[in-house]
Design a protein around this nucleic acid. Sequence first.
DNA 1: CCGAATCCCCACAGATACTG
DNA 2: CAGTATCTGTGGGGATTCGG
Lengths: 110, 110
Amino acid sequence: MKEIYDCDLGCPVQNTLQFISGKWKSVILYHIFKNDVLRFSELQAKLPYVSKRMLAKQLSELEADGILDKQIYPVIPVKTEYRVTKLGSSLYPVIEAMEIWGTNYTQIVK
Amino acid sequence: MKEIYDCDLGCPVQNTLQFISGKWKSVILYHIFKNDVLRFSELQAKLPYVSKRMLAKQLSELEADGILDKQIYPVIPVKTEYRVTKLGSSLYPVIEAMEIWGTNYTQIVK
DNA sequence: CCGAATCCCCACAGATACTG
DNA sequence: CAGTATCTGTGGGGATTCGG
């Protein structure tokens, strides 16, 4: 679990960014929120423009930060599943706000 | 104004990220939301860990994207003011969600 | 005071190949 | 299948300077 670390008192936004500022983290979370559970290959399919290496890095950071939980099934071939932790699920309102804006901003512009 | 550009249909979050994914953009927006209007030097004071060059870049991108409005007063020395546009103000719920989470996550963890 | 221009470097991301 | 390891290049960002 990531250390709790106020990098800028007076700017709580900064604290949130520590967890989701990775280039693809919000998108990964969005997909896992929508699907509850996703395998590595399923995430790859949903993010074809993100390299395997990049995806693995973002996932391991999210896991290290206590946002995601990784289940490994030692079958052959290996199978892994990612889901949100309790802490991760608390980020839902943030992702939801981004989802809403991303859905509606076209109309806002007009 | 930034072209509206769906880089990933089925992931509206991605659209939002186009506008606020810059390293410091959310924090800049947070401070301007709190203060309505901020000068360049005031933003510098609030973000001491961000270089002048970086701050200017983020601000000009936010302006180019139609999120911020820049007022230049051609006095000597020059004075500039940044405030949110209508489009920018529509991002308030997103920043607010990040602010709320950043304020409360310590308790969520426990 | 604000910010653009130039130089420069190294951290980060892609490509590829390898492993349990 | 789900990653790691290594190598390589590129551009993001700091430091500095200049200009309005």
